[in-house]
Each structure stands twice: as structure tokens, then as C-alpha cells.
Amino acid sequence: MRRQVPLILCFVFGIVMIFTQFIPHSLSQSLHQEVRQWYLIIFPFALVFSSIALIRTHVMRIRRRTEHWRYSFLIFIGILMMVVIGVPFGPQHHVFEWLFNNVQVPMDATMFSLLAFFIASAAYRAFRARTLEASLLLVTALIVMLGNVPVGDLVWNTVFAWLPWENATSGMKQWILDNPNLSARRGIILGISLGVISQSIRIILGIERSYLGGGD
């Protein structure tokens, strides 16, 4: 009951979603849409539950006075700020949009831009042209970076005037992206896709059960 029913549910819903996708009958399509809607209804509960789990973790941190426990209040403030405005009034409410544009978006962009510094220092340590493979990585990265900025063409156009492209580095960059890079990506995508399909079949057939967790 505790393990068999979830396995049956997973099998039934998985099979339904596969077959309904291939059957063009209106009944099959409406069943497909209905199950998709069920998914969209159930998923927010998972998110709310995971938020409760996060809140519980931080309540424990505050109770135990662990390191940096005072900052846990900021998580509550952040969630409350967005939920109190967003849930009753909707994401189109001007206060919610103001919070999104002036609090979340700047922090999001800044967090990602912070990586520019660390990625540069990591590259300095890691990119040593010791082997042919490392040299390929280094040279490709340099061409792509130079090809992304106008100064790359300005500097290298005279040196690489013999190349078939009007602008040397941006042309070379685009050729690399469209050919050797794309072929490597296709290889990776095909490999990942085969992995996703085999893993999905294992899950639907109940061979892969790790999502059930331990216990009975």
C-alpha cells in the first residue's frame, strides 16, 4: 500500500502521458490536457511544502542560535514581502512589480555578474596550454570572447585579412559556434536524450524507485 500504490500511480500517469501524445483523437487530447492541468495544480503544493520545510529549518537555526542565525529572519521577510502582496493581488500588482524590479532583479543580475570575477580567476588557474586538448579549449574560448566584442575585429582584421570572413574574429567565432561546437553539442544532446529516455522508462516501469525514499 505504501510503496505499491505510488508505483502504480507513476506507471499509469506515465503511460497515459506517452500514449495520449501519440493518439490524435479529441478524447485522448483532452485527457492529455486534463492530466497536464493536474500536474500544474499539484506542483504548487510541492513548492509550498518545500517552503515550509525551509522555514522550519530556519526556525530551528533561530532556536538553536547557530552561526548567522539572525539572517534567517531575512528569509522570512523576503518570502512574506512577496507572498503578502503577490498572492491576494496577483503578480501584476504595481507593488509586487516594484519589489520584483527593484529588489529581485538587481540582486539576481548582480549575483550572476559576480561570477565574472571568479570565472576569470578560475580560468587563470585552470587554462594552462599544457596539452593539445587544453590548448584547443583556451584558443576557442579566446576566439569566442574576442569575437563577441567589436574591438576583437578592430585589432585582428588586418592580421587575419586572408580569412574568408569580412570580420575576422566575429566570423571565426560564428563558424566555430555553427560547426565544431554544434557537432560536440549535438553529440552531448544525443547522449543526454538517450539517458533521459532510458531513465524515464526505468521510472515508469518501477525499476528506478529512489524517489520513494527509504522505509516501508
Binding site: L54, I75, G78, I79, M82, V83, Q104, D108
Partner: peptide, 12 residues
């Protein structure tokens, strides 16, 4: 604050 705001936004 970023963690809290992002989570709140996703919930909404």
C-alpha cells in the same frame, strides 16, 4: 534576502 524574495516570487 535574495533567497527569501526568490522563493516568495516562485510561490506567487
Amino acid at each position: 534576502l535574495f533567497v527569501g524574495v526568490s522563493l516568495g516570487y516562485s510561490i506567487v
